[in-house]
Computed example of a mutant assay.
Amino acid sequence: MEKSHFAGSKTINGIELYYEYYNHPTSKETVVLIHGFLSSLFSYRHLVPLLKERFSIVSVDLPPFGKSGHSAKYQYTFKNMALTIVHLLNTLGITDYHLVGHSMGGQIVLNILHHYPTQAKKAVLLCSSGYSKRAKQSLILASYLPFFYLMIKVYLARSGIEKNLRNVVYDQRLINDEMREGYLNPFLENSIFKGLTGLLRHREGDLPPEVLHQIQTPCLLIWGEYDKVVPLQTGKRLAEDLPNSTLTVLEDTGHLVPEERPQDVYQHIKNFIFEVAEEE
């Protein structure tokens, strides 16, 4: 009998990739969860229990975040991360799926839709990043300095986990010790800062409008009304540039929609997937 839940790591595209797989016994629909910057699959912990009642789920820690690895040889471009996710799914024998991406994870979803247009059936973008440019050349050159990764560590330490959480959550009462610990734990190892250096150096910038116009995959955009990280205006612009998309706005909600409104996000995802599935 096949296991219903598996957690582990695979070496994919030269990097150790941690993932969790929930295999639904009867559902034909699989949802792939991709988290955002400075986060991990921990950010979906309230959404997974809801989704797994109706779908099979694959949730991934993007390198170098969470429990995934760091390698100096790995190219931390969005295109390569998209390739890594696609290769993981192929390795797992999963060829028919829907993508869900939060923040930076949404941009990686868009890269999958662009570079591998036949892979995913539908996509859900949760406060997806968009229209960001590549880092300035001076900063990229500085990233080659010895111990630059420690400079990133100091910078993030100064901003502090509490300040960062307050910036991404609209209802401050939701911030508790579990949330603080969950988002802080991955940053206790220096390897993640070396990976962040690679991400800063390699990140090629978000997909431009002329590329977004070519993406035909049905997309549902879910946005927090008071998102301070990726403002609602970005969601409205993405909805205009993606030809087959719909924008849904959650009132009194910030950037971290899977934390703040998991029940609402689940309902929107479920309705979106099954509505299209029924049409087929």
Rank of each mutant, 00 (worst) to 15 (best):
S40R: 06
L17P: 03
S68A: 12
F37Y: 10
E29G: 01
D61Q: 14
S71T: 09
A7Q: 11
F42C: 06
E16G: 14
K28F: 05
I112G: 06
V48I: 10
S71F: 07
S68L: 14
G8P: 05
F6G: 02
H87M: 15
F65D: 03
H5D: 08
T11N: 14
S40G: 09
G69Y: 11
L89V: 11
G106H: 13
L113H: 10
T77M: 05
H70I: 11
L92T: 00
E16S: 13
S68I: 15
P25L: 00
L83N: 13
L92Y: 04
K52W: 00
F55C: 02
I94A: 02
Y76C: 09
L110P: 08
Y18K: 09
F37I: 12
T26E: 05
S59M: 05
V48K: 13
H102C: 12
L88Y: 10
G14M: 10
V86Q: 08
Y97C: 02
G14A: 06
N90Y: 13
V100E: 02
L47I: 07
L110Y: 10
F65C: 01
T77R: 11
L99T: 03
Y97F: 09
N80T: 09
H98C: 10
Y74P: 14
Y97V: 06
H35S: 02
V31S: 03
I112V: 13
V86K: 05
T91W: 13
G66L: 07
Q107E: 15
L99N: 00
F6I: 12
